[in-house]
Computed example of a mutant assay.
Amino acid sequence: MDIQDVDPFLRSINEFERKHWGQPWLLQHTGDIYVNDKISESFFFKTDQHIAINKHPRFAIIPEHRHEFIEMSYVYSGTLTQTINNNKITLSEGQLIILDTNVAHSIEAAGENDIIINCLMRKSYYDSHLIHRLAGNNVLSEFFVNAVYKSQEHSEYILFPSQSSPRVRSFMTELVREYYSSDICSEEAIGSYLVLLFTELLRLHKDANAGSETDSVKRTVNMADIIHYMESRYQTIDLTSAAKHFHFHPNYLSKIIKDHFGQSFIKVVQDIRVKKASLLLKNTDLNIAEISEHVGYKNIHFFYKNFKERFRMSPAEYRAVHRNH
């Protein structure tokens, strides 16, 4: 897909939209999309896919629902009206909203000129790719830390004043082009455009809210820095050295990590290690003992135990499943 093909693609009426034209209530009766009140991830994501980009379906009422992924919606044309946590919000052309996980929201039927681009991100993507890049940036750091680690306690959204930003429109258009073109290195290009997009959104939000930072946001920035530190030193990190780096008492660092993650410092480190190991199992030919040592385990039996707790299968089974896929 070339860049000039994006606009005709977005404005074309697909089969799903044609089905609901004049019958917006039909979506409420499609059982293959919803599991209880949550949208099934499998409806949007393929196995091991971390990002999905699609055009919001026009002419259909989307009933109240939740989902376990972050949803970013950009109004390419027209308007978008949602009810989020019982608050009705209408976005105009050029505006962008990011919804946290588990946010209850419904969407009114969009008209023919209401073109919305949705970018959906699994937790595994922003957990391993975005958090450390956003360390030190207040607004999105707070939002993504809460989305990943406290999703059951927070139900939030951020609305960005991006209607006058040609850069946001350009980045969103490029994301659509890359996603549907499947050119070489498209995944890498999509990741790069997302980082550029978030950088622009941070700047817009900062300009619109200059001088209004709260102490709670500043505290969360420190938490994002801690996550980054743990992600980058997971192989050898311990509580004492981490506390010394941030000029905290070990007991205090242990407490704030427990408050944010809901588990101890060592359990968080173990979770990081086994997730790094899962990537090595999928993408390298290192044997399991080498992987165990590489991610920081001195005892391979302890590695097997933690890995199975996290993924419900052994390292060898995990590798076989993902290699076959």
Rank of each mutant, 00 (worst) to 15 (best):
F246G: 02
D207A: 09
R233S: 13
D259F: 07
Q235V: 09
M72H: 02
N222R: 07
N36H: 14
T173Q: 03
T220R: 06
L80D: 06
L134K: 04
K298W: 00
P57C: 01
Y74K: 08
M121N: 07
I288N: 14
S292H: 04
E153Y: 06
L204N: 03
S141N: 12
R323Y: 04
A320N: 10
H301T: 07
Q270T: 06
G211I: 04
H105E: 04
R219C: 08
F43C: 02
N102T: 00
L27I: 11
T240G: 11
E71G: 10
Y126L: 14
F307C: 06
S165R: 05
R310M: 10
V176C: 02
K46D: 14
Y252C: 01
Y297S: 02
Q4Y: 13
G22D: 13
V35M: 11
K150A: 12
E112H: 04
V75L: 04
S106Q: 11
F311V: 05
K244V: 13
T220N: 12
Q23T: 10
S181R: 13
T79W: 02
H322S: 12
V217T: 13
L27A: 10
F265P: 03
F69D: 08
Q4H: 09
D100H: 14
P166C: 07
F143P: 03
L175C: 08
A189V: 05
N146P: 00
I61T: 08
P315W: 04
R312P: 00
R273F: 10
V268S: 11
S192L: 13
I256F: 02
V321C: 03
K55P: 02
P315D: 04
K244S: 15
R122C: 09
L197M: 10
P161I: 00
A224G: 14
S151Y: 03
D37W: 04
D5M: 09
M1V: 06
N36V: 01
Q4E: 15
T81P: 01
F171V: 02
F43S: 13
P315G: 05
Y234C: 01
L159C: 03
T199C: 08
S241E: 12
L27F: 15
I13R: 12
K255D: 07
